[in-house]
């Protein structure tokens, strides 16, 4: 009986493999962006977090090392560093701090990239393919310290701008809701 159980577990492990190491090379064309509907954080005072509707299927992007590393390349290629520098911010807000004006969940970040935001964040809908938006969002999550250290990479192959994403400190826990919803200074 125990032998059978062990076999089943072993086979399941084999079948699942290791999700972190997936290399989904063939990107999903024309992902339907309306599959992920979320609600923005409300600015109303008082306790109670935002009401969110999400499928959760995109959360896997930040668990797969390939997506995070592609996101890192795209961050440079699409010139996100032009406003956000290497995560420290410039004319755009910092991505490595704990302040997330529009929410730090991956769906929120993807929405920021896709929709654009007031005061300068351009919209990239139709310009960056959907799956690449999610890859960049996964990388931004890594910059924020949300991604597991075995998924994120330890350093960039460029000039040393900041500690590698796997060595960034984890963001602080906030009770109920997303961290650091505050107005920028």
């Amino acid at each position: 009986m125990t032998r059978a159980v062990v076999m089943v577990i072993a086979l399941a492990a084999l079948a699942a493999g290791c999700e972190r190491e997936d290399r989904p090379l063939r990107s999903e064309a024309a992902l339907n962006e309306n599959r992920e509907a979320i609600a923005l954080a409300s600015n109303a005072p008082g306790p109670g977090g935002p009401i969110e509707y999400k499928s959760g299927t995109r959360a896997q992007y930040e668990k797969i090392a390939f997506h995070v590393s592609q996101g890192k390349k795209l961050f440079t290629w699409y010139n996100c560093s032009g406003c956000h520098a290497n995560g420290g911010g410039g004319s755009g807000p910092a991505l490595m701090d704990d302040v997330w004006i529009y929410g730090s969940a991956i769906e929120n970040i993807a929405a920021s990239i896709r929709e654009g935001r007031p005061n300068g964040m351009p919209t990239f809908r139709g310009k960056i393919p959907e799956d690449q938006i999610w890859q960049i969002a996964a990388y931004v999550r890594a910059l924020g310290g949300f991604v597991a250290s075995d998924v994120a990479s330890s350093r960039h192959d460029q000039l040393y701008a900041h500690e590698g994403e796997s060595r960034l400190p984890s963001p602080p826990d906030t009770a109920g809701g997303q961290p650091g919803l505050a107005q920028p200074k």
Partner: peptide, 16 residues
């Protein structure tokens, strides 16, 4: 239409 089908893994994405 399908760069990933011809050269899987290439940096040119599939766009709609």
């Amino acid at each position: 239409v399908d760069p990933q089908g011809i050269k899987p893994g290439v940096n040119m994405p599939n766009v709609s």
